[in-house]
Write a protein that binds this DNA or RNA. Structure first.
Lengths: 211, 211
DNA sequence: CTCCTAAAACTAACGCTGTCAGGTTTCACG
DNA sequence: CGTGAAACCTGACAGCGTTAGTTTTAGGAG
């Protein structure tokens, strides 16, 4: 039955179904045909609303990036940076399966660029030289993406004995599984704190920012 | 002509051809059929030597991890950590296309675990509490993987005007393309320095390590 | 109210993918 | 000298992203 009375599909609906599948089945478990089936529609119907799978994923990624908050730079570079990094990480942690795509994607995504712009502007306004602001932005992104990607603790395996036998220094690695999420969150927070502390030390030892 | 006098394939040969293709054509541009063609062989022949594409990539990833150096912890945790992080990053930067796979892969890879073990051991031996050692290891991995993944500068686009018009604070982003590699290297080095500085400050402010 | 175009779905199909089954030749060993 | 495993082959299957062509309906123009 072609051309139904009321449209079966919408871009927003497609995106949300996409994210649902990716969250559940992983990036590799997502296919246009599966998506179409979930929406009660034939696969080619999707191509009326999205020209390509890549474009669709790009849009979904953009939607996720929209949740990243860069508004806190008005309270100081430290607050702005911390708030940005945390909301960035939180946004990715909510949908870890799409991170490999999202992180690789081109820097053309408007949502990403607007935020990069805001971060850079916030840092420069706080007294950081442009070159350093660029590197701070990049470094923070490294941290967030790295944390969202490998997710250190998820990389471990359930079988405890594997570790105990062969890697003595990882003796308590078996605890990682239990508190996997907590370890990840703590490690990220730890890395972020160390990084920002290092930044603060550098800033105070040379050019102080105009408050 | 089945069963040739001298074998056409070897695991090492397959791995090196795999890496060559991935370096040239990207992870998505790699297929078993293309690999087989490059080796002058039919695709199913590969399955005699590797049970699965995933297993093959896993092995290639392991080979890359073998190049990571964790021997410098004998010279102190700082030296060890820096040397580890740098050689880790260098190993990934040599084959950026495989990073998304490598970073996601399970923590079962022996090469990875041996190194994680050495890092953890080195940090603890230098006086870091076990819990902190875990987080330092994770943090450093975040940094390395994040840097190798998104590769901040590669995310930008050639068309300068895109940025100038719409993202004023990214005004000199057009320079990123030219010095892309340098920016990435500098940013990673910057992040690493800030992080280690932060670590040093934390260590000195509480429990000093036994030298 | 009718006609026409464009929208939004359909089925069929192409070339690609990872992988399996079954066949064929050659090597290594008892 | 025979036999079984090793190492290749061709052919095939299901699933992938995507295109072509068809069909029905909605919405606007005369």
């Amino acid at each position: 039955m072609p051309r139904p009375t009321t449209p079966l599909l919408s871009q927003a609906g497609i995106r949300s179904a996409t994210l649902e599948i990716i969250d559940r089945d992983g990036l590799g478990g997502f296919s246009m045909r599966k998506l179409a089936a979930a929406l009660g529609v034939s696969a080619p119907a999707l191509y009326f609303h999205y020209p390509t799978k890549e474009q669709l994923l790009d849009d979904v990624a953009g939607e996720i990036m929209e949740k990243v908050d860069v508004s806190a730079f008005q309270d100081g570079w430290r607050e702005g940076l911390l708030a940005w990094a945390r909301s960035y990480r939180a946004a990715l942690a909510e949908h870890p399966n799409i991170v490999p795509f999202l992180a690789q994607g081109p820097g053309q995504r408007d949502a990403s660029l607007r935020r990069a712009d805001a971060v850079h502007g916030g840092l420069v306004a706080a007294g950081w030289p442009a070159r350093e602001a660029t590197m701070i932005g990049a470094s923070t992104k490294y941290l967030v993406v790295g944390a969202a990607m490998g997710s250190f603790s998820r990389g471990f395996v359930d079988d405890v004995q594997v570790y105990l036998d062969r890697y003595p220094a990882l003796g308590d690695a078996h605890r990682l599984r239990e508190h996997a999420d907590a370890v990840d969150r703590d490690s990220f927070e730890f890395a972020l704190t160390m990084f920002v502390d290092g930044l603060a030390a550098r800033l105070h030892s040379s050019t102080p920012p105009r408050s």
